[in-house]
Amino acid sequence: MLIPLAMGGMLAGCTGPLSTLAPAGPTAGSIASLWWVMLAGATALFALVMGLFALVMLRPDWARRISPGRWIVLGGLVLPAIVLTPLLVFALLTGERLLPRLAADPMRIEAEARQWEWTFRYPAAGGAETRGVLHLPAGTPVDVVVTSTDVIHAFWIPRLAGKIDAVPGHANVLRIEADRPGTYQGLCNEFCGVGHTGMRFDVIVHPAVEFPASLAAAAAGKVQP
């Protein structure tokens, strides 16, 4: 009952610097599409079950004509099978497409988390380093190698892609890509102590051709001697 009402509100308020529903990259885009499909399906199922509940309460004579066995077989077995099978296949294919393996050897950037800041290194740019700001080229897939030097953190730029944990002792790779130049926001998404709330970073996406120069300028300004 709340869903339609809320859906209206949601469509109006999807924007925001951290909104997963205002995607600015292909990964976030396909996950947002997945969400809208699932929302439509979930709304229909919720309406179905609550409608049946209302029916059995208000029109028991109608409901009694369906045999108990049919209730359980149709509702408990057939319905989940119809809904879940295509959803799982679709999701598996979506997930496979988003993995950091298809494109030929994209640029790698290292994201190192520590309480409570992010350091980004760009091996392809001669080991340039920036703190608290991630520089990306637009329209180019990038593999971010996420590590941590202390506790577990998580690397997340909601408008570009899903998140991946920064686990000490492990290196996780996340494929991200931004469609257009601009400034985005990223944050730590795994609770990491008293500074967790403030562990954010900015993402500056440059036009691909200007990226090396912009990065060099940014790194020169930030890197300490």
Partner: peptide, 9 residues
């Protein structure tokens, strides 16, 4: 659904 969880987790 894994990809959605990557966002919502």
């Amino acid at each position: 659904i894994v990809p959605f969880d990557w966002q919502a987790h």
